[in-house]
């Protein structure tokens, strides 16, 4: 369940605790009532018009690297002599 999508904060209105996010070329007004310390430029997860969480760029990179690593493990295993050259 729980359709949510990452989008970048492009505008913050502290008075109404809301902001505007950009999802590619699409912009949408959302509530920031559920998150703390959000700055313009941050990526947040949007669910039913609310930012639910910040997205960690470092962790995203790490996870993406894992996908490549899966094959690295495989390549090492497949290489003669365990792959240490």
């Amino acid at each position: 369940m729980c359709l949510a999508i990452p989008a970048q904060v492009v505008e913050i209105d502290d008075v109404s605790d809301s902001g505007t996010v950009a999802l590619g070329p699409v912009r949408k007004r959302i509530s920031l009532a559920l998150v703390d310390d959000v700055s313009v430029g941050d990526f947040v997860l949007i669910h039913v018009g609310y930012a639910l969480n910040k997205i960690s760029p470092e962790e995203a990179e790490r996870t993406l690297a894992l996908f490549g690593e899966a094959e690295l493990v495989e390549e090492l295993a497949a290489a003669p002599g365990g792959g240490a050259t």
């Binding site: 359709l3 999508i5 989008a7 999802l23 590619g24 070329p25 699409v26 949408k28």
Partner: peptide, 12 residues
């Protein structure tokens, strides 16, 4: 188009 993809993601 990217905007169509994005809007569709947003609305499911």
């Amino acid at each position: 188009r990217p905007a169509v993809s994005a809007a569709c993601e947003l609305l499911g």
